[in-house]
Computed example of a mutant assay.
Amino acid sequence: MTLATLSEVLQPALKQGYAVAGLVTLGWEDMRAFVAAAEAEDVPVILQAGPSCREHTPLPILGRMFRHLAENATVPVVAHLDHGYTAEECQIAIDSGFTSVMFDGSRKPLAENIAQTAAIANLAGQAGVSCEGEIGFVGYSGGENSAGTDPEEAAQFARETGVDAMAISVGNVHLQQDKEGGLDIDRIRSIEALTTVPLVIHGGSGVPVAQRTALARTSSVCKFNIGTELRMAFGQALRDAVNADPTRFDRVQILKETHDPVVAAARRVLQAFKGA
């Protein structure tokens, strides 16, 4: 069994100069492909159930799916709740067998974010589960604008919440389809100078691959969330499978043809986070 907590995979990454990918799942086909990719690369992987995934499949079912994959994998697999917005949602994830929960209080005032995140970190810790928090708001491509993380506030947040990982806003944006941007390295250096907590980059699809690798090897950033670029790979593979034979209607046969392309795309993602 290789089920792991977030802390169990991030602490070695922090010490040894590599990063672990938090891969955003939407269903069985992609989560199975992500684990196959991690096994092929011999690296740990974090399977993430975000809000859109949870709209489609209930948390108790996702917990069983994640744990089934982990129990049969040859590499460490973390079952992670991504962007939990309430204590109730985090508690359901813990009760459903998740080994890590991310509480997102980034839209709240600092004191409220700290208080609520600390309560959930304590709740998770009592259950032997890791907790990720977010300080500074990471915006959305074509939507809400980001509010960058203040290094002093990040240090206070890390100190007073007791989180195992801290998501920061340093030029990263959710749902970005290109890699034209780049992260604010000076702000990252200022944050990591004030705290030893592993740092997390949400919206990792928009970060240039070379910068992902450099940060994985030389900074406290040791978790990158990757969703959009893998959803794009899945969508293209699905489109190709459907268009290859317009008379086909068996979705199992069609979805089978997404597996290899998604594994290949996920392997490229994972390769960038390996150490030197």
Rank of each mutant, 00 (worst) to 15 (best):
C222L: 11
P246M: 07
K108H: 13
E229W: 00
D260K: 15
L62W: 04
R67P: 13
G50W: 07
D42C: 12
H259W: 05
P60L: 04
A36S: 15
P60N: 02
M102W: 08
D42G: 05
E160Q: 08
V209W: 07
T228H: 13
V221C: 06
I254E: 14
I120G: 01
F157Q: 06
E132D: 06
R32F: 05
E160F: 00
K108A: 12
A214R: 00
R64L: 13
V207A: 00
L255H: 04
T161F: 00
K256Q: 14
P51Y: 08
G143K: 12
V77E: 09
T86Q: 06
P44C: 08
N122P: 01
R231V: 07
R159S: 13
H80N: 11
R159D: 15
G22I: 08
H259P: 01
D178F: 10
T57V: 08
E152H: 08
T247M: 14
H202V: 04
I114C: 02
R217Q: 12
R217A: 05
L194G: 10
G27T: 11
A79Q: 03
S219P: 07
L123A: 12
G136Y: 11
L14W: 09
Y140W: 07
A124I: 00
T228I: 05
L6M: 11
V129E: 03
S146L: 01
Q177M: 14
V263T: 15
Q211V: 03
Q91A: 10
E152L: 04
Y140V: 15
N172T: 03
Q211W: 05
M1P: 12
E153S: 01
A119C: 04
E8S: 09
G142F: 02
P60Y: 12
A147T: 15
L215R: 02
R107P: 01
R159L: 05
A147M: 12
A264W: 08
R32Q: 15
V20W: 01
I188D: 01
A19Q: 04
A237W: 07
I254C: 13
L6S: 08
K274Q: 05
I191N: 04
M1A: 14
A33T: 13
P58D: 02
A40P: 06
P246Q: 11
A237R: 10
N122C: 06
A265C: 10
D104P: 14
P58K: 02
E89W: 00
L47K: 07
S100L: 04
T218L: 11
G84N: 09
T258K: 09
D42F: 09
